[in-house]
């Protein structure tokens, strides 16, 4: 018990817990065939939250260790410029339809989520946290901070959105008769960010590349669009 009292107050323990849990969750996900319902991030969150509740550890203590991982989201967001640059030639060739689809998709995602939640009487903090839900967490956390939502709630909702997108996309593609790999990948990137992109790679390399492209474009566009959309929707 003395060990626990000593180490549970140290950042090192929580850093190790985060990484170990994620590795185990990734292994588990591969074992069950990569289903988006058991996404490594969702599984890690659940396990770590359970562990913290069982040991009576406050989130603040956990975050003292986990913040070293959290910090890397900033440079990782900047790093999205690299895959964007890699696909620049592709973007230039089909700039107009991609831009249109990205903008319409991003506005639909934010506006419809806010409208539905508003109709069901969700609180203002919930509405502001739900708005950036289709954007990669790295950017969504920043947006929620800026808007006055809860960054941690926003990032949780982003992850759940990612799983929902991976589940909904295949049947919708069948109904709408979408067969093109690029369209499949780009649509997954717009609606389900990084989790959609990872899923798009299962359709093929081109789908994955377009997913990454869509994720970057939607993230950047939403960061600039939401601060304008929120007052329009009188929040």
């Amino acid at each position: 018990m003395a060990f626990w009292t000593f180490f549970s107050a140290k950042p090192l323990l929580w850093l190790i817990v985060t990484i170990v849990t994620f590795i185990v969750a990734s292994w588990l996900n591969r074992r069950v065939g990569g289903t988006p319902l058991l996404h490594p991030v969702l599984v890690s969150l659940t396990l770590i939250i359970l562990f913290l509740l069982l040991t009576g550890t406050p989130y603040e203590t956990y975050f003292e260790g986990a913040q070293f991982i959290h910090f890397l989201l900033g440079p990782a967001t900047v790093a999205l410029a690299v895959p964007l640059f890699d696909h620049l030639e592709r973007v230039k060739k089909m700039l107009l339809p991609l831009l249109l689809a990205c903008m319409a998709g991003a506005v639909t995602a934010a506006a419809s989520a806010i409208l539905v939640a508003q109709a069901l009487d969700a609180s203002l903090e919930t509405l502001l946290s739900i708005a950036p839900k289709s954007v990669t967490s790295a950017i969504a956390i920043g947006i929620a901070e800026k808007l006055g939502g809860y960054p941690s709630l926003a990032s949780g909702l982003v992850l759940i959105t990612g799983a929902i997108g991976c589940v909904l996309a295949p049947p919708i593609y069948r109904i709408l008769n979408v067969t093109d790999e690029a369209v499949k990948g780009f649509t997954l990137g717009v609606s389900a960010h990084g989790m959609g992109t990872a899923y798009a790679f299962e359709y093929g390399l081109m789908a994955g590349a377009f997913g990454g492209l869509a994720m970057g474009m939607t993230g950047a566009f939403t960061a600039f669009m939401l601060p304008l959309l929120i007052p329009v929707m009188s929040l």
């Binding site: 985060t18 990484i19 849990t21 994620f22 996404h39 490594p40 991030v41 890690s44 969150l45 770590i48 939250i49 913290l52 509740l53 989130y59 956990y62 975050f63 986990a66 913040q67 991982i69 959290h70 890397l72 989201l73 990782a76 419809s112 989520a113 806010i114 539905v116 939640a117 069901l120 009487d121 969700a122 609180s123 903090e125 919930t126 739900i130 839900k133 967490s137 790295a138 956390i141 809860y150 960054p151 941690s152 709630l153 990032s155 949780g156 909702l157 982003v158 992850l159 759940i160 959105t161 929902i164 990084g194 989790m195 990872a198």
Partner: peptide
């Protein structure tokens, strides 16, 4: 994906908000 975990664990501090709004949140998503 790993980098999202620390902020995501913060969901545990929003249990009361999630309890009140879970249906709205799930349907909206």
């Amino acid at each position: 994906a790993l980098l999202f975990v620390p902020a995501g664990v913060g969901l545990m501090t929003h249990f009361s908000l999630l309890q009140a709004d879970w249906l709205a949140i799930l349907l909206a998503l």
